[in-house]
Structure formats: C-alpha cells, structure tokens
Design a protein around this nucleic acid. Structure first.
Length: 565
DNA sequence: AGAAGTTGCGCG
DNA sequence: AAAGCGCGCAACTTCT
C-alpha cells in the first residue's frame, strides 16, 4: 500500500512585463490564493525557494518560448504544466466527451530567428491580460483532464510538459561532439578535404570512375535525370536511381555508383559544412520539438538531429573525466502493442531481450528475419510482399494484438479517430478525403473513383493502425525521459544547485533523445548511479502505463566514452 | 530569381 | 530478400 502522493502546490508563472513575471498560486479548486510580481533577477532564488517547500507544478505558457530564457537566468523548473503542449493534446483528444475548445492563442507559433523575448510573449494575437488568459486556459484544461478516465490525461499532460523542459535543457547542455573524430571519419571515408569546399579526393576518384564506366567524362552525378539517361545508354534499365533498384542490377557501374552516392550523402548531409554550422565549443545543439509529430513523437528542426548517420556515432564523445550512458529499447513498439492489447502470448514472446526470437519460439514463423518482417508488417499494415504474406501467421498466434491493430485500421478506413493508450488522438482525415469517400458511395460512382477512394481509405487505415502503436511507444519514452530527469536531480549537486554556474556543466544530464534511445553525459564518478536511474526509469515507465500487466521492456545500456556501437 | 514540388536517403 | 508507418534535409527540377 503506497501513501497518497503529497498535494501538489501549483503556481502559474507568466511573463508579465519586460523583466518581470507574475506568479499566481492556486488552491485545490484552482482559485487564486496569492499573487506576486518577481523580477527576472530575483526569479532563480524565488523559484528555488518555492520548489523546496513542497512539490510545485509550475503552470507556464510554453517551455519552448520561455524556458531558454529562464535557464539563462539560472532558473530550473522541476515540474510544469505546459499550456501550449497540453492545449494540442486536449483540443484533439477523443478520450473525453467534451474536449478543449480550440484557441489560436494557444497554438504553437513557429520559432522566430531571434531568441524568444518577453515582448513576444506579451504581444500574441490576444488582447487580454496574459496572466488572466493563462489562468483561464489552465482552468479549462483542468476540466478536460479531470473528465478523462484513470488519470491517463493527467499522466500524458505531465509527461508532455516534462518533455518540453527536457527538450530545452538538452539544447542548452548539447551533445558532446568530438570535431577531430568527426573530421577523421570524413577524411577516412571521403578522402582528403578539398580546398574551397570542393569534392574530397576519394569521392572525386570514385566519381571519375563512374563517369568513365558510363562513358561521359562530364556527367553531373547529382542530377537523377542525367544519371538515369546515362545508365540507360550503357544498358542499365532502371526506372529510378534509387539504391534498392540499382542494387538489383549486375552492371559494373553499380558498385562504384552506390559507393559514390553514399559518400555524396555523407558529404552533403553531415560533412565539414555541417560541422562548421552545427557544432560549437564541442557541442551539437539541435532544436527538439516535443509533440512535433502527430503521433506524439518528437521532431527536430535544424541539424538533422534525428537522422545522424550511425557512422558518425564515434564522434559523440564524453568530455575528459566524463562518460556517456547510452541506452535504447529493443523493439519498443511491439512490446507496447502486446501490453495495450493485453495479449499474453505476445507478451510471453517479448520476455527477455529479443522479441523476434520469442516469436520464432512461438512457432508462428521459422526464422528471426521472418519474425521481424511479420511484426513490422503487422504494425505498418503490409499486405503484399514477403512481409504481407507473413502477417496472417501472427493472427493465429497473437489474435488479441492483431485484433487491436486491425481495429485501429478499420476505424481509420471508416474515417474515425483512434487514440493512444493515454489518450492522444489521431487527426481527422482531410475534407478532401471525406469528400472522395462519400463520392465513391453514390450508386453511379465512377469505378475509378471507387478504386481511388478505396486506396485512400486503406492508406488512412495504415496510418491509424500505426498511430496507436507509435503514439503509445512515444508515451512510454516520454515517461522514461521524465523519470530519468527526476532521478538525475537526486544525484548531487542537482541542476537546481548548479544552476547559477550553468546547470549542466557539472551535473549528470540528458544529452540526446531519439524515439527509443537516450544518451546521458555524466561525470565518471556518477556513471553507475546514472545508469541505475535510466534502468529504474524504464521500469517505472512500464508500470505507470500498464500496471501489473507482465510486459518486459528491456534496455540495452552501456557506459562508454563514445556512442559508438 | 525565388517558391514550390520531387527525389533520394538518413533515422526510429 | 521488402516496398507496410512516422519524420527532416539537401539537391535537383519545375513552376511562377
């Protein structure tokens, strides 16, 4: 029997003038009990004081808009309710009878080039008092959250808000990046860097070789059209220049061309120009956008943070005296599916490190590769090819799990809305989609229209099928992140204590997050404690979502100087 | 010339 | 060996 959680103190903290904030404390009924005006200079001390007395949840407009400024002033917020992030969830949720009324004032604005200022926060579309508007919006959101069942929206909003803080903190902290190691990888792979940003030596040689084989010494290899014509001239009859199609050909040009394309990609996406633009003072600082994907996954802007090629992972290196904790979950999505559908057979297959091995043991398929394609096909909605062929076998062995995703697909095909485990809902299909569907149902509908409508319906069904799984996995990951952060705060000195001298210069901190993987940057003496925090956080995330349902979510975790695998 | 769309490939 | 989901970005191509 666990004690009831301590009552949470709630204080709205809203920028209310140049260099000042208004702090409004609320009672249990959301009525105002106290109002203070605090200058930014006083804020760090004031917040730290308010946070030590008891757990405080800070109601803020948006971590994205304001937390960077707060962090720069040495202010750490431990728990927040992020009105912008929660507005998006509560406005669209299908988990309650009356969702939040949409409001333009609470829609995320695209970031401006300059750092967000207090001035911006004060001059949004609305004319009213920013503090009163924030309080009113918060009370509306609380009403919606309270009307949900099992506290799921409470958990989702808390986790989403924590994500908002973590995204900003990771940007401030940055991912430790070894420029020399990156440069060495580039030189090793592409050859010596050319003066003036030209083509590096190995890549240039390979390009010359490809042109020679294609019999055109001046061919521009980056133009798909010209390349395609050149390929046709030498008898390579592909329809596109994409890698998978080229790989099926046996012509002598294929190998050097594919190698060239690989190099070209590395150079343009993560070459020396990327290094100069994105890595400063040994840190890569991407912009993370929590909730940027409809499913709840994070997106990123700038630097391609979520697409860093694995070949560059050795460039992620801890500072001297520090180390990295690199942890990821193997097959997070099918584990979530097993739990959310209460499919005990699938949960049994998920016991231990390799879910695919478990699927093979169940007798559904013969090999691990088949298991992988079958499971991915089930979650993505494959109907053809090897993957589509294997999916029906899973339906026999894991009927509950399959019924769950099949139902989500059917709902989508019918134009309905599906929701994640915690209640984030899929968008409504577009008006154009709906119009096409109704056009196709009329008695004299053109067969071509009917066929197109059918195809679009299946497309949308594949989206909703995947939405419930991908979105629930995103929820697990958010809770994992939040719990990691919470535990790192227990390792002294906490961010709060270290805030004045740059909160992450001395303390263990999250440095990178990619859907189901985290990287922590940690002083060596705290490595074991931080690793424990990551493991415990995973256990807690699973329990928070699924209670006692027996689902394993094992981590691959290592403590290392570099993120190299 | 610059905007908008397409292709191809990196990540989960 | 497959062609099923979600993204961001660079470069090329086409549109205005």
């Amino acid at each position: 029997m666990t004690a009831a959680p301590p009552a949470e103190r709630r204080i709205a903290l809203i920028a209310s003038g140049a260099g000042s904030y208004t702090a409004v404390e609320l009672d249990e009924d959301d009525a105002e009990v106290r109002r203070d005006v605090v200058t930014s200079a006083e804020l760090a001390g004031w917040v730290a004081e308010a946070d030590t007395a008891t757990q405080t949840r800070w109601i803020i407009r948006s971590a994205r808009e304001t937390y960077a400024t707060l962090l720069a002033d040495g202010v750490i917020l431990n728990r927040t309710h992020d009105l912008l992030l929660c507005h998006a969830i509560l406005r669209d949720t299908d988990a309650v009878a009356r969702p939040l009324a949409p409001s333009q004032a609470w829609v995320r604005r695209e970031p401006t080039d300059a750092a967000p200022s207090l001035f911006d926060a004060l001059h949004d579309d609305s004319a009213g008092d920013p503090v009163d508007e924030a309080l009113e919006q918060y009370r509306e959101q609380r009403r919606v959250i309270a009307s949900g069942r099992d506290g799921r929206l409470t958990l989702l909003c808390a986790a989403e808000s924590a994500g908002g803080l973590i995204a900003e903190e990771m940007r401030v902290a940055g991912l430790p990046w070894d420029v020399a190691a990156h440069d060495a990888i580039l030189t090793e792979t592409l050859g010596a860097r050319a003066a003036g940003g030209g083509i590096p030596s190995r890549m240039a040689e390979l390009g010359a070789q490809v042109r020679s084989i294609l019999g055109d010494e001046t061919l521009h290899l980056d133009s798909q059209q010209k390349l395609l014509r050149a390929l046709h001239r030498v008898g390579v009859h592909v329809e596109s220049t994409s890698r998978w199609e080229l790989a099926e050909q046996s012509h002598a040009v294929v190998e050097p061309l594919l190698a060239y394309k690989k190099m070209s990609r590395l150079l343009s996406a993560n070459g020396w120009a990327w290094l100069a633009e994105w890595v400063h003072d040994g840190r890569f600082r991407p912009v993370y956008i929590p909730g940027g994907v409809v499913t709840g996954r994070w997106a990123s802007a700038g630097g391609g943070a979520l697409q860093l090629p694995r070949s560059l992972r050795p460039a992620v290196r801890a500072d001297p005296g520090w180390t990295l904790i690199v942890a990821d979950v193997a097959q997070l999505e099918p584990r979530m599916l097993a739990a959310m559908s209460s499919d005990r057979a699938m949960a049994r297959a998920a016991q231990g490190r390799d879910l695919y091995a478990g699927v093979v043991d169940s007798g559904a398929v013969g090999t691990r590769e088949e298991a992988k394609y079958a499971v991915l096909g089930a979650m993505y909605g494959a109907t053809t090819g090897d993957s589509g062929r294997l999916v029906p076998r899973l339906r026999k062995v894991y009927p509950r799990a399959m019924a769950h995703v099949d139902a989500a697909a059917r709902t989508g095909e019918d134009g309905g809305i599906v929701s994640t485990w915690l209640g984030r809902s899929s968008p409504r299909p577009s008006a154009e989609w709906s119009r096409l569907q109704s056009e196709a149902t009329s008695a004299d509908a053109d067969p071509a229209v009917v066929a197109l409508a059918r195809r679009r319906a299946r497309d949308w069904g594949r989206f909703t099928r995947n939405f419930v799984v991908q979105g629930t996995a995103a929820e697990w990951s958010l809770i994992w992140l939040a719990e990691i952060r919470h535990r790192l705060q227990q390792i002294p000195p906490s961010f709060t204590e270290a805030a004045a001298s740059g909160p992450f210069a001395r303390t263990p901190h999250l440095a990178f997050f990619l859907h189901d993987e985290v990287i922590l940057h940690v002083p060596e003496q705290h490595a074991e404690a931080a690793a424990d925090a990551v493991r415990e956080a995973a256990t807690v995330a699973t329990r928070r979502l699924f209670g006692d349902f027996p689902i394993d979510v094992p981590l691959d975790l290592r403590i290392a100087m570099s993120a190299e695998k």
